[in-house]
Amino acid sequence: MSEMEDKTRTPRQDRSIKTKEAIVQAAMRLFSEKGYHQTNTKQIAAAAGVSTGSFYSYFIDKRAVFIDVLKNYSEALLARIEAYMSEINIQSPDKYALLSHLVDSLILSHEVYTGFHKELSIMYLSDGGIKELMDAQYEVGRVLTLQYLQMGKDELKITDLEAAAFLVFESISAIVDVIAFSSHRIGTDRIKSELVSMLVGYLYI
């Protein structure tokens, strides 16, 4: 741990916790609007309503606050997905409707963070530490997908659940990202319909 890292503090009082949260929220807004490389610590501090010195009492640099923003983003996204998943009846005989609801839920969850997602894509390719954190979060998604399949395994025609969970997660993630974050020539409803039909045909008897 460096000398600078030794000087940062972990907030324990309500006021300090709120100050750190304000810095993280301000950073996410600026990263989403201006981009990571076009944002500096002075701008983040000003947007959070704190001094630059106060910023450095919580974070050693801009990258450190980006990591906290990434963690908050991942936790919020996971909470949204879990909330939507709790509405799903895994035993429903209408598997098309079941998976349609899942895909719609994921799209809605992702669309909240459009601006920040673009910066994540850039940082994933340019920063090994960020890539490692994001890869770990993707693995959480794959594990959740596996758990989802295991709950309804008696109705599945596939036998290798772990490999199937990987394929399903990657397929849905790729298409949801395209729908939520990119322009596309084919209508969203058509893309979703074909994705769901593909998954139903692959998974279910």
Rank of each mutant, 00 (worst) to 15 (best):
I67M: 14
E132I: 00
N72K: 14
I17W: 07
E119A: 06
I44H: 06
K157E: 10
D189R: 03
L78D: 12
M123K: 12
E75C: 10
A64M: 09
S2M: 04
V176D: 09
T52D: 15
V178T: 12
K42V: 10
G53M: 12
S51A: 04
F166Y: 09
V200K: 12
G35A: 09
K20G: 08
R15F: 06
V103C: 03
A46S: 15
V143N: 11
Q147I: 01
K18P: 00
E21V: 01
E119Y: 06
R63M: 10
A180D: 09
E33W: 00
G115N: 07
R29A: 08
E170T: 04
T52W: 10
H184G: 11
G152F: 00
Y124W: 04
V196G: 05
F166V: 12
S2A: 09
G49M: 04
E5P: 00
G35T: 06
F31H: 03
K7D: 15
K20L: 09
E132N: 11
A163I: 07
L149R: 03
M1I: 07
R185M: 13
D94I: 12
I191L: 05
F59V: 07
S32I: 01
A180F: 08
F31Q: 02
L108V: 13
Y204A: 09
T19K: 01
Y148D: 13
K20T: 07
S105D: 10
I44G: 08
I186M: 12
V50Q: 07
S32M: 03
K71C: 11
V24P: 02
R63V: 01
I23M: 09
A27T: 04
V200H: 12
V69T: 08
A64P: 07
Y124A: 08
A27M: 05
L108D: 15
V176A: 10
V143Q: 14
G115A: 04
S105K: 00
F59P: 03
A46L: 13
Q43E: 15
L30R: 03
G201S: 10
E3G: 02
Y36V: 01
R63L: 08
N72G: 14
S2V: 01
Y84C: 14
E5S: 11
K42R: 11
M4C: 06
N89S: 14
Y204C: 05
A45I: 01
I130E: 04
A64T: 07
A165H: 01
K95V: 14
L70D: 08
S32N: 05
P93G: 06
F31G: 02
S92G: 08
V24A: 00
S57G: 08
D104Q: 04
A27I: 04
D6Q: 14
T39I: 00
S51H: 02
G49L: 05
I205K: 13
I191E: 03
S16L: 11
K153P: 04
L108K: 15
E33D: 12
G128V: 00
E111H: 02
G53Y: 04
D127K: 05
I107T: 11
